[in-house]
Design a binder for these strands. Sequence first.
DNA 1: GCCCACCATGAGAGCGCTCTCATTTGCAAA
DNA 2: TTTGCAAATGAGAGCGCTCTCATGGTGGGC
Lengths: 340, 340
Amino acid sequence: MTERLTLEIIGELAGVSRATVSRVVNDSPGVRDEVRERVLAVIQETGYQPHSAARSLASNRMDLISLVIPTSTQSLFTDPYFPRLIQGVTQSCNENNITMSLFMLHSEDEEERLYPRVLNRGYVDGVILASFDRADPLVARLEQNKMPFIMIGRPEESSNASYIDVNNEAGAYAAVTHLVRQGKTRIATITGRQDISSGKDRLAGYKRALIERGLSVDENLIVNGRFNELEAYNAMLKLLPHQPDAVFVASDGMAYGVLRALRQANISVPDEIAVVGFDDLPSSATSDPPLTTIRQPIRRMGAMAVDMLLDIINEGIDPPRRVVLPTELIVRQTCGTLNL
Amino acid sequence: MTERLTLEIIGELAGVSRATVSRVVNDSPGVRDEVRERVLAVIQETGYQPHSAARSLASNRMDLISLVIPTSTQSLFTDPYFPRLIQGVTQSCNENNITMSLFMLHSEDEEERLYPRVLNRGYVDGVILASFDRADPLVARLEQNKMPFIMIGRPEESSNASYIDVNNEAGAYAAVTHLVRQGKTRIATITGRQDISSGKDRLAGYKRALIERGLSVDENLIVNGRFNELEAYNAMLKLLPHQPDAVFVASDGMAYGVLRALRQANISVPDEIAVVGFDDLPSSATSDPPLTTIRQPIRRMGAMAVDMLLDIINEGIDPPRRVVLPTELIVRQTCGTLNL
DNA sequence: GCCCACCATGAGAGCGCTCTCATTTGCAAA
DNA sequence: TTTGCAAATGAGAGCGCTCTCATGGTGGGC
């Protein structure tokens, strides 16, 4: 086991003091170019790497943020939402030279055990909370501990936490408006869970679109599919007697269930019933038929969350940062586009 | 900003020295029960948490492992493989009270920048490498740095790295054997990428099953679908003229493409052609028709990887630890089960 | 040619913990 | 009670770094 390289040793090799090497390593000013190069050369050839714990201890920052994904969201692991979010987060962390630790809470028990590791400045510099529960108890604890954090999705109205969200309402509005423009008049919707902000917002957008376009909101045409493929399948069956000519489905995953139901009922899509989803899952491009849907910038959201969090860490928690990202309508073949 | 709680302060409050508090915090022996309780009480009411960096610096362990997912695997983010793996890893990390940092490498550039953070004992205690590239250059660097690590999937034969893998060969063998038992004789396969061990192993299992069952291997019945839905769709089209009565598809994602092709060609599944997939994606239970497939214990693999890594960290790198986990045949409706 | 200012560098303290080793304490046996 | 010994506790050094402050050197202005 060879001895660990330290600033001291590098300094010795380069003929300077520990302090100077530290300055070089941290790109601090006040080092002659000639000296800087000499030190850099030594670092290069020895392969010196600063000891992160020592650095953290002395500087009181961990260069570590954590991404927390609570229990309740586990079920949503079937779609690429989290992978994409994680991609965005890690990418931005890499660019900013900090590391990301991931906490997935599997049980209440674990939550209790893990909280300290997430709430304490001795562990992380900040937290990204990807909870769908708007009233997640972790929010209060984070605020109380003055831990910098940012939510993915919107917290309760009363909270003044920082957050970043996708404009679900506007996305749904765009989807339904598109359907109206196709001449559809009996537009149904299969909603997502209403205890989740995205589920609620998508329903709200649906309603606003109908009203603004002069169509009435018919409660018979609204069925809850709870973001579940099978429930959506059944919901579609329930919808059929009310003769919709279009369905806005609050997630692509549910839309697959809808397409399956319609296929089995021998109802042609989009001629008899048009379908629009939400999420733009990869497989929506090759579904049968390819699904018209709303694309959300998940990856970008993850990346921006990191940037915002770093800003909070550096500049302080006030005022709250809030960002809502736009969505995009992806027209494929389930919506009966007339190719105007 | 209130002053940070330290061992010193807790000691003062409890009327003991820093050293004793440290012993209590770390569950070390040699503290009278009475004293221990007194200290614990103070810790409890003050909410003291040790400073992880200070602890790391003094003890020379980081209580941090990292999960590294290289560039090349990005495309596979469409299926829940990684989410599940990550779930398993985080769960086991939680149980062992260590934290997991996630590195996803997005580009060559980033790789260079990130390597030091993953190769250096000053950053992490060990690494789990979830690469599909058996000759990933990171392996050599990890070995060279004597960094404890474990691969998910098998490394090159020559390497003596520790790894954990799923028995892809046996899974494929089971799938094809099942097809043979159903009386199928012209069993085709759509393979995955052959530069990935799982792709290769599944093809090997397919061949072994045919041979052991006295069927010949017909190269016309083997087409590469590269783990891609669209390529699998085209592969199925290419297979049709050779009149297979069954297809073993090397991934569920590809199997969906196969089902789509067969549906459009008006070929009934399983009556005319039986289909068996691999992976058991969540949506395979509700595909049209529900897909017979091979389930892999991904989550468990992730959890075991952590346990094995910790063992390596504590007990040393030799001898290499190697584990191969079994798969399970999930019979649904695409394989023409006779319900014997 | 001298002084002063300023830039480059080094010395030293300290971050909060662990761990070794010395010291004290408590208790049983004599 | 005294002695001896093991168990409990404390003192102190040190982990590798950052950061402040002192010091030394250099050049410009007069």
